[in-house]
Computed example of a mutant assay.
Amino acid sequence: MGNAHGLSNGGVFGGWGSSPHISEFSRSGELVYDATLPVGTYRAYLGAWP
Rank of each mutant, 00 (worst) to 15 (best):
A48P: 05
S23Q: 13
G2N: 06
R27P: 01
Y33N: 08
A48F: 05
L37T: 10
N9G: 09
W49V: 12
F25K: 02
L7Y: 02
L46H: 06
S26H: 09
S18P: 10
M1P: 05
A4K: 03
P38G: 05
S26C: 10
A35E: 11
R27H: 09
G15T: 06
G15N: 02
N3C: 15
V39G: 03
G17F: 08
G17I: 04
M1V: 10
S19C: 00
G14T: 11
S19W: 14
H5A: 03
H21R: 10
N3V: 01
P50A: 05
E30I: 09
V32R: 12
S23R: 14
E24Q: 15
A4Q: 02
L46M: 14
L37Q: 07
S28D: 12
F13K: 08
R43I: 01
G10W: 03
F13C: 07
H21W: 11
S19D: 13
G47H: 05
P20T: 13
W49G: 00
A48K: 12
Y42W: 14
G47S: 08
W16N: 14
P38K: 00
Y33R: 15
G6Q: 10
A35N: 08
G2H: 01
M1G: 12
G6N: 06
G11H: 05
N9V: 00
G11R: 03
P20G: 11
S28M: 00
S23N: 14
D34I: 07
A4Y: 00
P20V: 10
S23F: 11
F13Y: 15
R27D: 07
L7C: 05
L31E: 15
G17W: 07
R43C: 00
E30P: 01
G47I: 03
S18W: 13
L46R: 13
W16G: 06
M1D: 14
G29K: 14
L31H: 03
L7I: 04
V12K: 02
V39E: 04
T36I: 12
P50R: 05
G14D: 08
G40S: 03
A4G: 07
S23T: 15
G40T: 02
A44M: 04
G29F: 11
L7G: 07
P38T: 03
P38F: 01
Y33K: 13
A35S: 11
R27Y: 06
A44T: 01
Y42V: 04
Y33G: 04
W16R: 11
E30L: 11
V12P: 01
G29C: 08
A35D: 04
Y45W: 08
R27Q: 13
S8D: 11
